[in-house]
């Protein structure tokens, strides 16, 4: 399984965490498409704690964290 953790406004309508089968997705971009998230809605994409790009591969057991840009003060 792949665990997807959403943060801040990306949680709205998606919850905090989602589990996906590794067969469903092969890269970060697939996860964004799976959850209808535009690339510009994501400021940080971490795979297992490391900065990653949407094209970076994902494998079974990975933890993906997605953060939106937050700029209010």
């Amino acid at each position: 399984m792949i665990e997807v953790r959403f943060f801040a406004t990306l949680r709205e309508g998606r919850g905090k965490v989602a589990q996906l089968s590794a067969e469903e997705v092969s890269c970060g971009g697939d996860i964004l498409r799976r959850f209808s998230i535009q690339q510009e809605e994501v400021a940080i994409l971490l795979i297992n704690g490391f900065h990653s790009k949407p094209e970076d591969p994902i494998k079974d057991g990975d933890i993906v964290a997605l953060f939106p840009p937050v700029g209010g003060g």
């Binding site: 406004t9 535009q38 510009e40 809605e41 940080i44 900065h51 939106p68 840009p69 700029g71 209010g72």
Partner: peptide
Amino acid sequence: CAFRHAPDEEKAPDAK
């Protein structure tokens, strides 16, 4: 380091 690129202010979530 955390947020490499400034988002498009028009498209980014806006607290206003």
